[in-house]
Simulated assay, not measured.
Amino acid sequence: MAEHDPDQPSLDLPTGGRFADRQHRFPIRVYFEDTDLSGMVYHANYLRFMERARSDMLRLVGVDQRGAHDAGEGAYAITELTIRYKAPAKLDDALVVVSSVIRVRAASVDIQQRVMRGAEILTIAEVTAALVAASGRPRRQPKHWVEAFERLVRQEIEGK
């Protein structure tokens, strides 16, 4: 049996996203279950695509959502969402969800997300995720989470 090359993704692990500069890029394939009777992606499924991409982005910057929840430190809740649908995705389309942190506050983070087919924007959204305690009340994000998000925001400013 051949030894696993660490530079090659394992075929046994799910495909994840990656960062290109400050933008997180998460690949999605449109399957039959994602479409409605017309053969286009059902509107609510774009939210699922974005949720997967956000979760992957958070994991890659060092935010351990499961660990925080299990330790009783809270969990993220979506407190605001604005979405605009521009063009439909269809069965078997290869899409990329592009996520960018645009603002960080003590208890929340604002993220812009675009669902792309090549260079075409299909859907664009702005999402606010707030860290909340088990009681449902907002709480401060851990310092290292805030610092990771701020690095992504600064990278955008320095890159302009």
Rank of each mutant, 00 (worst) to 15 (best):
D7A: 15
H69V: 06
D64W: 03
V104C: 04
D110T: 11
S100M: 07
R84Q: 14
A148K: 01
A134I: 02
E150D: 09
G17A: 09
F49N: 03
T82P: 00
D36C: 12
A53F: 09
A53V: 13
R84E: 14
R18H: 11
V98R: 05
Q65P: 02
Q8W: 05
V132T: 08
H4T: 13
V109M: 07
D56T: 10
T79E: 04
A87K: 06
T123Q: 04
D93G: 09
A106F: 00
G16W: 07
A106M: 03
A87W: 00
R114I: 10
R18D: 04
M50P: 01
R29I: 15
E33I: 15
V96Q: 10
T35F: 11
P6V: 14
I102K: 09
A94C: 05
V101Y: 04
Q112W: 01
R22T: 13
G62A: 06
A2W: 06
F149K: 01
Q23M: 12
E51Y: 04
A130K: 04
T82A: 10
V98H: 00
V97L: 05
A107N: 03
E156F: 04
H4Y: 11
F26P: 03
D36E: 11
R66S: 13
L58P: 00
T128K: 11
D21W: 02
P138V: 10
D110G: 02
A134K: 08
P6Q: 07
I157A: 14
A148N: 03
N45Q: 10
S100V: 14
M57T: 06
E150S: 07
L131R: 08
T82H: 13
F149P: 01
Q141T: 05
L13C: 05
V127F: 01
D64L: 07
K160P: 00
L91C: 09
V96R: 03
P142E: 06
R139W: 03
P6N: 10
M57Q: 02
P142R: 05
A125T: 09
E3K: 12
R18S: 10
E158M: 09
V97I: 15
A2V: 12
S10M: 11
K86N: 09
L152E: 02
A20T: 10
R18I: 13
P14G: 11
V153D: 04
R48F: 10
I111Y: 01
G67Y: 04
Q8T: 13
A75R: 02
